[in-house]
C-alpha cells in the first residue's frame, strides 16, 4: 500500500485490520438484543446481536456483508461498545454519528471511541458516510426499539 497517500487516508491500515478481523463476528450468546440493518443504496447488511447484563452490554457481535468501511466500522463499534453501560452506549453512538454526519471535531470523540478517528477520511466521500454509520444506526435501533422507545 506504500505510496498511495490518497487511498491510505480513506482506507487506513487500522480499518483494513478491523475489516479482516473476525474477532467480533458471529452471534452473541443468549442475545437479548437483535437488530437488522440494511443500506438500501448498496444492499449492505448487518445483523447485530448483544446480551445485556445489569445495565451493561456484556457481549456484542455482528454478521453481515459489505464494504471495508461498513464492516470495519461495525467491528470497531462492537469493540468500543462491549462492556459499556447501555445509556453510555447510546451516547457513544450519537457521538460517533456527530463526528461522521455533523463533522464534529475528531478531537471531541469520547475516549472509548479513540480508534474511530480512523474513519475521519470517509467524510471526504459523502456517499460512503452511510457505510460508516450503518452498524451504529442498527445498534441504536436495537437499543431504542423500532419505534424509538426503550424496550427495557
Amino acid at each position: 500500500m506504500e505510496g498511495d497517500a490518497e487511498l491510505q487516508d480513506l482506507y487506513r491500515e487500522v480499518l483494513m485490520d478491523y475489516y479482516r478481523s473476525s474477532a467480533r463476528k458471529g452471534e452473541a450468546e443468549a442475545a437479548d438484543l437483535r437488530a437488522h440493518g440494511i443500506n438500501p443504496v448498496c444492499g449492505d447488511e448487518l445483523e447485530i446481536t448483544a446480551r445485556r447484563e445489569g445495565g451493561r452490554i456484556a457481549q456484542l457481535r455482528y454478521t453481515g456483508h459489505g464494504c471495508v468501511i461498513s464492516q470495519a466500522s461495525a467491528a470497531m463499534m462492537a469493540e468500543a461498545l462491549e462492556g459499556a453501560g447501555v445509556d453510555r452506549a447510546k451516547e457513544l453512538v450519537k457521538a460517533f454519528k456527530a463526528m461522521m454526519i455533523e463533522n464534529a471535531a475528531v478531537a471531541s470523540l469520547p475516549a472509548e471511541l479513540e480508534q474511530l478517528c480512523a474513519l475521519e477520511g470517509v467524510r471526504r466521500f459523502p456517499l460512503r458516510v452511510k457505510c460508516a454509520t450503518l452498524g451504529w444506526n442498527t445498534m441504536l435501533q436495537g437499543l431504542e426499539g423500532p419505534s424509538g422507545e426503550d424496550p427495557r
Binding site: L10, C42, D44, G66, C67, V68, I69, F125
Partner: peptide, 10 residues
C-alpha cells in the same frame, strides 16, 4: 466489495 472498487475508480 464493489463499493470499495467504485471509490478507487472515482
Amino acid at each position: 466489495h464493489p463499493h470499495d472498487v467504485g471509490t478507487v475508480f472515482d
